[in-house]
Design a protein around this nucleic acid. Structure first.
Lengths: 188, 188
DNA sequence: ATCTTATGCAAGCAATTACTTGCACTAAGA
DNA sequence: TCTTAGTGCAAGTAATTGCTTGCATAAGAT
């Protein structure tokens, strides 16, 4: 299959291996094999392992569901969309967000690839800022609101995905949003 | 310094390196150097890298603040203690919880070391179960409640710890607990 | 048809890594 | 005091890993 490799499936293999083993844990050999591309080609095209990862991360995180979110006037609908977008992203790429947070600071060579990642985060923050301004949710540092909403989803999916706890049910978006808006306390 | 190495500082070095680079990313050389112990000694005592990690994880997670929590009749006090215990644990060892969730399933050799880890999780779950039974918080699968409470803390600390976002303020325990109990919505 | 360019293939290189071994030494226990 | 178990040190091994190179080949552009 000469004259142009399938970059999409290559990048997919990169992300998959990255999620499975971490940056240091995965090898260019394995990635090449999984993608059906010769290892030498990887270095000719991307120069280095870091270069390959930079391109792959940047490319794969560009058209993730999280990237297309925009705030509307309907808080409930926005929360649903946001939750679903995160869940879908997680199903596509695993815990990319957390891996990025953990590893990007430690591998500066890959850091430049975080552009789309930051855009996604900023995208999510913007939604909460918008609803704060319209007095639909409590006013507080938006990062706090974001983590309050995304943190539970991310944590739940990671535990579910780890396989350590068998028979974990699907994440209940409805219940989460209600808890997020109305709280979990029963006394007043 | 012969006749017995300082196991405590050795295990501390193991955890620190693990957090910094992941299991595959950190080397026995670096750990030995950081702990002031000869590398050969590590293999004579623990047999392998995995053996060393198993012992280190099991030992270090035993007397973490999370391990001593017990439910009381005061929901608010329990939530404060839980949050503080998680934050303290994070300050001591970084995101051990997440690293464990991510990596333990992939390295079965280390899996046996997760004993104390599970005990800690179970400990946290028990607190919510207790308050659910006394009708102080909404009744739902306790894992959902746990992630709803811990998820935001963990996520916030990880982002703060990543250094990607400069000037992130301290985590506001008070605000988090209020949001957890009363919700963040302003409409009814 | 021809020239160029990207690829596959095979072999290999230098560095790293988990792990080993033999030896000298030092402290603790008898 | 003398034995002994645990350690440091230095050197080394086999395997892995990021990365390179020379060569043949198969498309795309002209």
């Amino acid at each position: 299959m000469p004259k142009k490799i399938d970059e999409t499936s290559l990048f997919k293999a990169v992300i998959a291996d990255w999620m499975a083993r971490g940056y240091a844990g995965c090898t260019t050999r394995d990635i090449a094999k999984a993608a059906g591309v010769n290892e030498a080609t990887l270095f000719r095209r991307y120069g280095s392992k870091a270069g390959l990862f930079a391109r792959a991360i940047d490319h794969q995180l560009a058209d993730v569901p999280l990237a297309t979110l925009t705030p509307s006037d309907d808080l409930n609908a926005d929360l649903h969309r946001l939750a679903q977008a995160y869940i879908t992203t997680f199903k596509m790429h695993g815990d990319v967000v957390f891996r990025t947070i953990q590893e990007i600071p430690r591998y500066p060579e890959v850091r430049e690839a975080a552009g789309n990642f930051f855009r996604n985060i900023q995208n999510m923050v913007q939604i909460f800022v918008s609803h704060q301004q319209q007095n639909r949710i409590r006013s507080e540092p938006p990062l706090l609101t974001l983590t309050a909403f995304i943190g539970p989803i991310a944590t739940y999916l990671m535990i579910q995905n780890s396989g350590l706890n068998p028979g974990v049910p699907e994440f209940d978006v409805e219940a989460h949003i209600e808890g997020f808006l109305m709280g979990r306390g029963l006394e007043r």
